[in-house]
């Protein structure tokens, strides 16, 4: 567990995740108050990475629940292993077991498939439960989650109430694809991760892509930062910066020039309109 905000910072840095003081405070509070941590921000700024880093720092496993439209309780919580149950019924049929016996059998732990949410609750030690891209799930699922997260327990008709043996660290991430409900937000510690400042991005690139030389790294970050000032459909985020830096290292670049940038710009920008906009103004954007 974390002892102080400084401790959070130190341990996460050890995991190669550079965290600012603000975010560290939020992580610390979420862990200490045993509240879910809701992380919002543009895609690719390291929301999911933060959860992974926290798991690493706490030296526990990470259980991940990826949300998507149509995700329901059975996929998130638990399912009965239907095929196995069928097999058992058939094999019982050959012997002379009664229906009562069979029924008692097929709804037991053996045929039970715990899905991420239940896994996290049943885990012996504290684990990190990452509910990724919660905004992609349906509203019904969100309210279902609400119940699980407020008391850290769920009711299963055949098994009774399952209470968390140790309360997991819950991290929710959202891209603001849709507005989350107030009820959920109220229960969370909120953290917004924005695009990093020049110094922070520089430090991140240095840690993650140590092969790039100093001048190149600086120029890369400068260029990306100036791109973010433009009005783009999707500004490049840290993950794109890192990809670009790795690409440039692979190409053996020592510095960046117009031609090189134009050839590799599709790594940074994902929309044709954006690329066109940048191409038009490329000479003004390059750092000296």
């Amino acid at each position: 567990m974390f002892e102080s905000i400084e401790d959070v910072k130190k341990k996460l840095t050890k995991q190669n995740y550079l965290i600012n003081y603000r975010a560290a405070t939020a992580v610390f509070l979420a862990v200490k108050l045993q509240k879910p941590l809701l992380i919002e921000g543009p895609a690719g700024v390291g929301k999911t990475e933060l959860a992974k880093a926290v798991a690493g720092a706490l030296d526990t496993s990470l259980i991940r629940l990826q949300c998507y439209e149509g995700l329901d309780e059975s996929k998130a919580l638990f399912e009965w292993n239907y095929q196995k149950q069928l097999l058992r019924i058939q094999s019982n049929h050959l012997t002379d077991k009664t229906w009562e016996e069979t029924r008692a059998n097929i709804f037991s732990e053996e045929f039970f498939l715990a899905r991420p949410l239940l896994q996290a609750l049943k885990a012996e030690n504290t684990v990190v439960l990452l509910v990724d891209e919660l905004d992609k799930s349906d509203e019904e699922f969100e309210s279902f989650l609400l119940e699980a997260l407020s008391d850290y327990q769920v009711s299963i008709p055949e098994l009774g109430t399952v209470k968390a043996s140790s309360i997991p660290v819950v991290v929710l991430t959202s891209n603001n694809y849709r507005e989350l409900s107030d009820a959920l937000k109220r229960r969370c510690i909120h953290l917004y991760i924005d695009y990093p400042s020049f110094e922070r991005e520089l430090a991140i690139v240095r840690i993650k892509v140590p092969e790039a030389n100093k001048v190149l790294t600086e120029k890369i970050v400068q260029f990306v930062q100036s791109l973010r000032k433009m009005v783009l459909k999707k500004p490049p985020s840290i993950s794109e910066t890192l990809d670009w830096a790795r690409t440039l290292v692979l190409l053996g670049a020592q510095s960046i020039n117009e031609e090189l940038v134009l050839n590799t710009i599709n790594i940074l920008l994902k929309y044709q309109q954006d690329i066109k906009k940048v191409e038009e103004r490329i000479s003004g954007l390059l750092p000296e």
Binding site: I5, Y21, R22, T25, A26, F28, L29, K32, L33, K35, L38, E40, G41, D182, K185, R186, C188, I189, H190, L191, Y192
Partner: peptide, 29 residues
């Protein structure tokens, strides 16, 4: 009440104070 609990855990220098309150009270960027 969450904010108050959190303040007891963190501390009272200005930056922490601000971060703590914003993390617990503000849920929308």
């Amino acid at each position: 009440s969450e904010a108050l609990k959190a303040l007891a855990l963190t501390g009272m220098d200005k930056k922490t104070f601000f971060d703590t309150l914003s993390a617990t009270l503000i849920k929308d960027q």
